[in-house]
Design a protein around this nucleic acid. Structure first.
Lengths: 255, 255
DNA sequence: CCTCATATG
DNA sequence: CATAAGAGG
C-alpha cells in the first residue's frame, strides 16, 4: 500500500512535463495532489484513468488557484469533498477518501507568504484543521493526513532555521501547532523512518537555483494515525520527480 | 534612405528573438515599430543606440499594450509625439519625425477584431486619421505614413478575400477609406513597385501554421506622398524576419 | 522563478 | 497561437 502526496504546482503543467510516466513508474495506490490549479474547463483525468486510477477532485472556486485531487487504485467506501466550511472549501483544500482499514485526508494548507492577511487566514485554518481532525478521530479510524502543510516543525526541517525563525511556515506558533497535532496521535512517517536525518526537503523556491543547492523546506508530510504506525514499512522523499517546485513524499503501509 | 515599418508584437519579445541582429543587417535609416507593448519600467533602447540609432517612444498609458517607437540614424528637425487627441494618444498610436525633405508618420491603427466596440473605435479613428493627415499636408510636406494599418484595400491584399468581405480590416467601409486616403495624394510603395503581385502579405495569424501556408493579410503599409513617388527606388516585404506575427515592410528613397 | 487567468491581438 | 501584466505562490 503506497500513498504519495505531491504538490504539482499546476496539474496541467505537471502533465506537460511527463507526470503520467512518473506515476506509472512510482505506481502509488493512492496519490494525493495539491495545487492542481484547475481552470474553468473540466480537468482531463483520462490519463490517470488509463493507468487504472479513479479520480476525485476538489478544485477551488477561483480558476487556476489551489485545489486538491486524489487518484486511487482502490475503490473507496466513502468520499468526502471539502470540510463543510465555506471559506476553506471555496479554496479546494481538503478531500477525504475512506478505505476499509484506513482513510486518506488530502490537504493543501494555506500559504502565508504573500500577505499578512493570508498568514492570519492560515493561522485560522490551522486551528480549524486541528479541531476538525480531532472530530474525525472519533468516527474515522486510521487517518493518514497527507499534503502540503506549508509549515514544518523542527530546525532540521529547513535549510536555514536561524534566518527563518519568524518566516511564515516556521513561526513559533506554527511549530507549536505542528507538535500539538503530532501529540494528538500522529506519526510523521518521514521522521519515523529517517530519524533526525538532515537535508531532506520537499520544496525549494524556483529562484536562484535553490533546488540544485538543496536550499529547501520540508513542507509536505504524511502523518499517520499512531495506531497505524506499526504498519509503516517505508517512507521518504522522491526528489527525482521534477514536475514542480515540490517533490513527492511517500509512505508504504504493510497489511 | 531606407525606411522600415515593423509590428514587433512586443518589443521585449522581439529583442529576445534577435531583433537587434536583424536590424544591424537590414540597416534601415528610419525604423518604425508598432505594438512595442512597453511595461511600467522604461524600455531598454541601449541596443539600438549601440547601432547608431536615436530612440523616440510613444508608449500607451496601459502597460503591455500597443505603443509605437521610431529609431532613426538621421537626426530629426522635429519630433511630434501623439496626435493631440487623448483617446488615441493614451493608446500610443502616432509618432512623427520631421527630416529635412520628408517626414515619417509612424502609426499603429486600432484592431477591430476583439469586440464590436473596438471596430467602432477603429472606424472613428480612420475618419479622424484621414482628417488629421489632410491637415498635416498643409504644413508638413513629403509625408511618409508607415505602420500597421490593420486594414487593406484590394482582394489581392489578403489570402481569402471572399470569406472576409465583412471581416474587420476588409469591410467595404475600410476598403473605401483606404482608396480615399490614397486619393488624397499617397502612393502605396509596395503596389507602386510590385503592381498587382499576389501572395505578398505582412501578417499571418499564429494559429494553425498560417505563415507556413502563407495564409495572410497585407496590413502593414508605407504610403508615400505622391510628390515623393519619383524617389522610390525599391519597396517590398522582408518575410525572413520572424520576430513577430508580422513581417517588416520597407521602402527606399533616392535623393 | 514558476503557473495560471485575463486582456488583447 | 502569441505577447504581456498581475495574482499567487
Amino acid at each position: 500500500m503506497k500513498i504519495i502526496t505531491y504538490n504539482v504546482n499546476g496539474l496541467r503543467s505537471a502533465l506537460s512535463k511527463g507526470l503520467l510516466d512518473w506515476v506509472r513508474e512510482a505506481d502509488p495506490d493512492v496519490l494525493c495532489l495539491q495545487e492542481i490549479k484547475a481552470g474553468t474547463a473540466p480537468l482531463d483525468v483520462s490519463g490517470f484513468e488509463a493507468l487504472g486510477y479513479q479520480a476525485y477532485l476538489h478544485p477551488a472556486a477561483k480558476p487556476g488557484y489551489s485545489g486538491v485531487a486524489t487518484f486511487t487504485k482502490l475503490t473507496p467506501k466513502a468520499v468526502v469533498v471539502g470540510c463543510g466550511t465555506e471559506c476553506y472549501d471555496s479554496e479546494g483544500r481538503v478531500l477525504r477518501l475512506d478505505f476499509d482499514d484506513f482513510s486518506v485526508l488530502n490537504t493543501y494548507m494555506p500559504s502565508g507568504t504573500s500577505r499578512p492577511e493570508r498568514q492570519a487566514f492560515k493561522i485560522g485554518w490551522l486551528h480549524f484543521f486541528r479541531a476538525y481532525v480531532r472530530e474525525l478521530q472519533a468516527t474515522v479510524p486510521g487517518l493518514v493526513i497527507g499534503g502540503d502543510f506549508n509549515c514544518c516543525q523542527r530546525d532540521i526541517d529547513l535549510h536555514n532555521a536561524k534566518a527563518n525563525q519568524n518566516s511564515p511556515g516556521f513561526t513559533p506558533e506554527e511549530r507549536a501547532w505542528f507538535a500539538d497535532l503530532l501529540a494528538d496521535g500522529y506519526t510523521d512517517a518521514f521522521r519515523h523512518h529517517h530519524g533526525d536525518a538532515v537535508g531532506h526537503y520537499s520544496w525549494w523556491t524556483f529562484r536562484s537555483g535553490a533546488r540544485a543547492r538543496n536550499v529547501g523546506w520540508r513542507l509536505d508530510h504524511l502523518l499517520v494515525d499512531s495506531g497505524l504506525q506499526p504498519r509503516i514499512t517505508a517512507a521518504g522523499h522522491l526528489p527525482d520527480a521534477v514536475h514542480s517546485d515540490h517533490c513527492p513524499v511517500f509512505v508504504e503501509l504493510g497489511e
